[in-house]
């Protein structure tokens, strides 16, 4: 138990963060290098103004027409992504871990709110799963890996919630939480989860093309 804990809390956490950061840097760098080599034109059309114009429009809930057409999906998506980022960073336990490890600290969320947000993430995962099962056009596109990824995202939240509530078996769940969270972190650069990296890149590029070259909106 202590050996597992020490490993998960120590080296594995370090490895997870390293894999995440280096993996993301690698993905961005290799994408950049490939673009330089074979898509050099994209750099010539990049416009900061129009890139931001597009990115901002797609970061503001309901700012794009398609978001308004799917209000539930939009709401769930925004809540999901917001919570997905906020909980890991602003949960008090996590913030304290950062504090202990690197002696940096920031404001954290009240645990009650964090609990609700955690439930929101899990609920959103269920919603997404539901879409994948019940919406024909989404089911058609869904692959096994899409479902696995959803599971990988939900698991740390589920186990974390369990551990937080100190439900029976919570010590094991705590370890499951830590391990699954670290695995998720490491998966980001190497699975579809890297869409978080490429969102600003693609949106920025398309925004530039639409704004500066095609003089049109893209939302």
């Amino acid at each position: 138990m202590h050996a597992v804990f020490n490993f998960v809390r120590g080296p594995m956490a370090g490895i997870a963060f390293a894999v995440f950061i280096i993996g993301c840097l690698y993905q961005m760098a290799s994408m950049w290098r490939l673009a330089r080599k074979k898509d050099a034109v994209v750099f010539h059309y990049f416009s900061l103004f129009y890139a931001l114009r597009s990115i901002i429009h797609w970061m503001v809930p309901f700012a794009a027409l398609n978001m308004r057409r799917h209000p539930v999906m939009t709401g769930v998506t925004f809540v999901f992504h917001l919570c997905l980022f906020a909980v890991p960073f602003f949960l008090s336990s996590h913030a304290i871990l950062f504090k202990e490890s690197w002696d940096v600290s920031w404001a954290w969320l009240p645990d009650g709110i964090a609990d609700i947000m955690t439930l929101a993430v899990m609920g959103a995962c269920l919603f997404f799963l539901g879409r994948r099962i019940f919406l024909r056009e989404v089911r058609y596109l869904t692959t096994v890996s899409d479902v696995l990824i959803l599971f990988c995202v939900a698991l740390p939240f589920f186990s974390g919630f369990w551990a937080g509530q100190q439900w029976p078996g919570f010590p094991v769940m705590t370890l499951v939480h830590m391990i699954s969270g670290e695995i998720l972190l490491m998966l980001i650069p190497f699975t579809r989860l890297r869409h978080m990296l490429f969102f600003p890149v693609i949106r920025g590029y398309m925004g530039s093309e639409f704004g500066a070259v095609r003089r049109a909106r893209d939302w």
Partner: peptide
């Protein structure tokens, strides 16, 4: 909090004895 945690759980972790998980 950091001081407390390092003091208690830090020692537990090193000695592989005593509680280390939040709950």
């Amino acid at each position: 909090i950091r001081a407390y945690h390092l003091q208690c759980a830090g020692c537990h972790g090193e000695r592989k004895a005593g509680p280390v998980l939040c709950g």
